[in-house]
Amino acid sequence: MKKTPAEKELDGFLARFEPEVEALGRAAVSWMRQRLPGAVEMVYDNYNALVVGFGPTERVSDALFSVALYPRWVNIFFLSGAALPDPGKRLKGSGSTVRSLTFKKQEELADPTLEHFVALAVSMDRDAQPMEKARKERLLVIKSISPKQRPRRPL
């Protein structure tokens, strides 16, 4: 299947990371795509990180999750994570809204905790249910590219 210009651009953003982080980031994005097949994917090549958000529309405020690549790890953010029950205190973050899980190796994506929190977040969000049926093909949108960025590889 031929890649769209946005997919080619995302490939270029990912290629700037160390091979291990790039592979982990690709695996995390693929993992989310499998679970949210109708999601709109919004790419932000920000100052601090490369972020791929997942939501039912192109509005960032509707996003449920994001995968963020940093020079040494990948975070999966739950954008309404503070509302998720987390008796084991696995989710990181102390703000009023967002929580995250950090991954340094691809094998960690198989942790059932990730699957649990993603399913829980989708079930708790009324707008997320139609996301899975929203479109037959995924939509990838490059939302912003910061002209100034921190290095994508460790110094």
Rank of each mutant, 00 (worst) to 15 (best):
P19I: 01
R90H: 14
A119I: 00
P112C: 03
R59E: 14
G81P: 08
A28G: 08
S80R: 15
P112D: 02
L79C: 07
F117N: 02
G95I: 06
G81T: 03
P37R: 03
L50Y: 11
K8M: 08
L69I: 05
A121L: 06
N46M: 08
S94I: 05
E22N: 11
L24N: 05
K105I: 00
P112R: 02
T102Y: 10
P5Q: 09
L91N: 11
S100V: 00
Y44N: 10
Y47C: 00
E107V: 09
D111T: 03
E9H: 07
T102S: 15
G25A: 12
E115Q: 12
R59Q: 15
R26Y: 01
L120I: 01
E22M: 12
T102M: 12
T57E: 10
E58W: 05
D11Y: 02
H116I: 00
A110N: 14
F13Q: 07
V98M: 10
R16Q: 13
F77L: 08
F78C: 03
N75R: 13
V67D: 09
E58R: 15
R59S: 15
A28H: 05
E107G: 10
A49S: 15
L114I: 04
V67P: 09
A6L: 00
K8G: 01
E107D: 12
F65R: 07
V29L: 05
A6D: 11
S66W: 12
E41D: 06
L101Y: 04
F103L: 04
E108Q: 15
F54Y: 13
A23C: 04
V67G: 10
V52Y: 09
S66I: 03
G95H: 12
R99L: 07
L101C: 06
R72T: 13
D45S: 05
P19V: 01
S96L: 10
Y44A: 10
A121Q: 14
R26V: 05
T4C: 07
M32Y: 00
S30C: 09
